[in-house]
């Protein structure tokens, strides 16, 4: 019991912070505490969230994936240009997802097979995918297909003027599947074990190599699925999109209580992290008076505050078990 509680303290803290943050914003800004704003949180941050779920697995395994933003951009422009060339959207989406996963798997293979640092391999992956995105098409393009429009208009009403569009539903689905994979599958347990201590995982007979390749393939898949969500969200593809998204995703994962050293964390925490990120952004839009350069300083300070809070909690939890 006690052990369980200790593990859950950072997660509880994150959820607590989310509630406090949302309450403070609601008290300050009329109209903030509405179902519509909540629904927006899910739909506006859908692609960040989907990417962050993949990133959670990578970080849990002790790695990092800097290529996600570029892979997302590549996916959006690839879908836009394939559909523009007369392909059926479903086919274009399938091709994009396969390419994204394959690209991730290739990076994972390099990392595992030649013991290369993930930071560098995925950095190269980021450069490569970004350049390829611009090679596909340098200018943003509209995805126009009746099927795509119909898909983009799908939404679930959850209240007056509050809808969950397909992107938000996709995000929630990815989170659910992510939680199940992390907690209930052999792969998920292997990821935690490798992140905790790779040498021991190897000695325990866990398939370290295969798991690592799969982790990066999963992240590549999530990045391209995030790209699909982005095209549904905007109805267009843009090769310049998602620059810096990898850092936002890492920040969301870290805020969500996953340790960058691996082995500790949860997909649910990442969901909370993404929502905290989104709440801060929404609150700043509602405020609407903040100079843009102050904005950066505020975001940085909040990020720091969260990390320090987590540190303090983790320390006090381990000091008084």
């Amino acid at each position: 019991m006690r052990l369980l509680r200790r593990q859950h303290i950072p997660l509880l803290a994150t959820v607590g912070m989310l509630i406090v943050l949302f309450s403070v914003a609601s008290a300050l800004y009329p109209g903030f505490a509405s179902l519509r704003v909540v629904a927006n949180l899910f739909s506006d941050n859908a692609f960040l969230g989907i990417v962050a779920v993949g990133m959670t697995f990578v970080i849990l395994s002790g790695g990092i994936d800097l290529s996600v933003g570029a892979v997302l951009a590549f996916t959006t422009i690839l879908i836009a240009s394939l559909v523009g060339a007369g392909w059926h959207p479903l086919l274009a989406i399938s091709v994009a997802l396969v390419l994204g996963s394959g690209f991730g798997a290739a990076m994972g293979w390099l990392i595992h097979r030649f013991i290369l640092p993930p930071f560098l391999v995925t950095l190269a992956g980021m450069f490569f995918a970004r350049g390829m995105a611009f090679l596909v098409q340098a200018q943003s393009a509209v995805v126009s297909h009746p099927f795509y429009d119909a898909l983009g208009d799908l939404r679930l009403q959850i209240g007056p003027k509050a809808y969950l569009p397909i992107t938000a539903l996709l995000f929630l689905l990815v989170v659910l599947v992510g939680i199940v994979i992390a907690r209930r599958s052999r792969f998920g347990r292997a990821v935690y074990a490798i992140g905790g201590a790779e040498a021991s995982a190897l000695m325990m007979g866990l398939p370290v190599g295969r798991t690592k390749v799969r982790v990066y393939a999963l992240s590549g898949f999530c990045a391209s699925l995030g790209g699909v969500a982005a095209t549904l969200y905007m109805g267009s593809g843009n090769p310049a999109m998602g620059s810096g998204l990898e850092l936002d995703a890492i920040a969301a994962v870290v805020i969500g209580g996953t340790l960058l050293t691996g082995g500790v964390g949860s997909v649910f925490g990442t969901l909370a992290g993404v929502l905290i990120f989104g709440t801060i952004q929404s609150a700043l839009v509602f405020d609407g008076r903040l100079n843009s350069w102050w904005l950066r300083i505020v975001i940085a300070s909040l990020l720091l505050a969260f990390i320090l809070l987590q540190k303090a909690l983790a320390r006090s939890a381990s000091a008084h078990p």
Binding site: G31, N40, D44, M234, Q281, S282, V285, G288, S292
Partner: peptide, 23 residues
């Protein structure tokens, strides 16, 4: 005036517009 700066990212700008609509 409610001002929002997207810092060069379209996704931020869309979020801002949707935030304005919600307000």
């Amino acid at each position: 005036l409610k001002f929002s700066d997207a810092q060069g990212k379209q996704e931020n700008q869309i979020k801002a517009v949707r935030g304005f609509i919600a307000q």
